[in-house]
Amino acid sequence: MIGPFIRYLAYLPANLAFVLAAYVLSPLLAGLSLLTGPRLPGVLQWFSTLDANLDGGVAQGVAGYRAGLRGWRLWWQRTCWICRNPAHGWQSELLGMPSESSVIVRQRLSETPKNQWYVMETAKGVRFFCFKRDQPLFGGFYLKIWIGWVNKSYDGRNHHYAFQIGPRRA
Rank of each mutant, 00 (worst) to 15 (best):
A59G: 07
R73P: 08
C130Y: 15
A14H: 00
H88Y: 13
V103M: 03
I165F: 11
C80N: 14
A52N: 10
A87I: 13
F129E: 04
F128H: 06
K114R: 13
L109F: 11
R73A: 15
A52F: 04
R106V: 02
G89T: 08
C80M: 15
G57A: 10
G64D: 14
L69R: 14
P113H: 04
R73M: 14
T122E: 03
V119M: 08
L16W: 02
L95N: 10
T79N: 13
W117K: 06
S153E: 10
M120H: 04
V119K: 03
S99Q: 05
P38Y: 00
L69Y: 14
A87Q: 11
I104G: 01
H88T: 08
S102A: 15
F129R: 05
N85V: 09
L29A: 07
Q116W: 01
P4S: 08
V119Q: 11
A22Y: 07
N158I: 00
I2W: 09
K152N: 10
D155V: 10
Q107W: 04
G89L: 11
S110Y: 00
Q116E: 12
R168I: 04
Q77G: 12
L74Y: 12
A123H: 04
F163A: 08
N85M: 08
H159V: 04
G42P: 01
L28Y: 02
A87R: 10
G140N: 11
N15V: 00
L50P: 00
W117T: 06
R73K: 15
F5H: 07
Y65D: 13
R133A: 14
F129L: 04
C80F: 06
G42Q: 01
V58M: 12
L94M: 12
R39Q: 09
L44K: 04
N158E: 06
Q135S: 05
Q91K: 15
Q164A: 07
W75Y: 14
D155M: 10
G125R: 06
Y11R: 09
V43S: 01
Y161F: 15
I2S: 09
L94F: 13
Q60F: 14
R108I: 08
M120Q: 15
W76N: 11
P13F: 05
L94R: 10
I145Q: 11
S153F: 09
G96S: 10
Q107S: 13
F131P: 02
G31H: 06
A162M: 12
G140L: 09
R39N: 01
S102G: 05
I2K: 09
S101M: 03
T36C: 09
H160S: 10
S92V: 12
V126K: 11
Q116D: 02
P13Y: 06
D55R: 12
F163D: 07
T79L: 13
L109K: 12
P98L: 07
N85W: 13
W72S: 14
L34N: 01
V62L: 14
K124C: 03
